[in-house]
């Protein structure tokens, strides 16, 4: 078990290092965006004087390197800064303060996690179940149909799948609401109904990958001698797959599931905008639009951290699920 702990710590360290590199990339990329907050917020009213005033207020006139280290320092102490948009408002009032990025992101992030949770609750069982069935009935009409269906849904852009679902489930048969504007204090049942369409859209996007990996890794094992042995013992095909093949096929499946979960957090931008879902993706788009750099950077960083952490989890889980890795010689 000690080795596992060592591996985890090692990976965590590497993850942090990756995050540091990512932070540099994010910072440079965000600052390379044309136009800045002052210009965007003032729009047609951007006179030289007003622009300079806002830049000075927000510290945008400082050199890039200084701004980076100030940001990095704040981040290390858990202070992601204050949203420009909110700061501008606060200073207009003659006060200080304003809403910090953490306060602004927290409820949105919770919403995104809720959406990801609902999606995962639907997508993972469906994908693994379909994968097992496809392996069991491989090369039958069912297998082919499942493959074609999931592959076509993954091949279409998300917004297209979203509109197809809206057309069939909201416009032609008004079963589900096309608007997913959930808010704090909404009853859980309604929240779930409103989240269903975006969750289904995301499900369609992620199922194929997981299902095909499940199918492939199980089929891969079905040729091995110990499965043949089991078959010769006369065990039912379903039991062979679930009891004998699946445990050994878990590592790659978990890997793919983790990757897809990461995608559910970072890749929801388009879906959230289409369904007007107030998650972190929508906040990200709105913030990029007005060049609210602290929020954009924080969102990017959260996305990066989610990816790194879930990859780490995938690694650890596949180690734990594999006795050979769990007990190295």
């Amino acid at each position: 078990m000690n080795t596992v702990l060592k591996i985890i710590l090692q990976r965590l360290g590497l993850g942090l290092l990756t995050l540091l590199v990512v932070s540099i990339v994010i910072f440079l990329a965000v600052n390379a965006l044309p136009g800045d907050f002052a210009q965007v917020i003032l729009g047609q009213g951007a006179t030289e004087q007003a622009t300079a005033q806002i830049r000075r207020d927000l510290g945008l006139d400082q050199p890039l390197v200084m701004r980076y280290f100030a940001w990095l320092g704040g981040m290390a102490t858990g202070d992601l800064g204050t949203s420009f948009a909110q700061l501008n408002f606060a200073q207009n009032m003659g006060g200080s303060g304003g809403v910090t990025v953490v306060e602004q992101i927290a409820p949105r992030f919770a919403n995104t996690m809720f959406l990801a949770g609902v999606t995962a609750a639907i997508a993972v069982p469906v994908a693994v179940g379909l994968g097992i069935l496809a392996a069991l009935y491989r090369n039958t009409a069912f297998d082919k149909a499942a493959n074609v269906a999931t592959l076509s849904s993954i091949s279409s852009p998300e917004f297209f799948m979203a509109y197809v679902l809206i057309l069939f489930l909201a416009v032609l048969n008004p079963i589900l609401p096309s608007l997913s504007n959930i808010y704090e204090g909404m009853p859980f049942g309604e929240r779930l109904t409103r989240t269903l369409l975006p969750a289904l859209t995301l499900t369609l996007v992620v199922v194929a990958h997981m299902m095909r990996m499940t199918r492939a890794s199980i089929i891969n094992l079905l040729a091995s001698p110990y499965i043949e042995m089991a078959r010769l013992k006369g065990i039912a095909p379903m039991r062979i797959i679930v009891r004998h093949a699946l445990p050994n096929a878990l590592a790659p499946i978990i890997n793919v599931i983790a990757l897809n979960l990461a995608y559910l957090i970072t890749g929801v931008v388009v879906v959230e905008v289409v369904f007007v879902y107030p998650g972190i993706g929508q906040l990200f788009v709105d913030s990029v639009k007005i060049r609210d750099i602290p929020v954009v950077q924080a969102c990017c960083l959260i996305f990066a951290a989610a990816y790194i952490l879930l990859n780490l989890t995938a690694d650890v889980m596949s180690i734990l699920s594999n006795p050979r890795l769990r007990h190295p010689k």
């Binding site: 008004p174 608007l179 289409v274």
Partner: peptide
């Protein structure tokens, strides 16, 4: 008042009677 900046989402919301 619901903020719907996306044109298509706004049309859909009206079409489906959400707004």
């Amino acid at each position: 008042y619901i903020a719907i900046n996306d044109n298509t989402a706004r049309n859909n919301a009206l079409l489906t009677g959400q707004v």
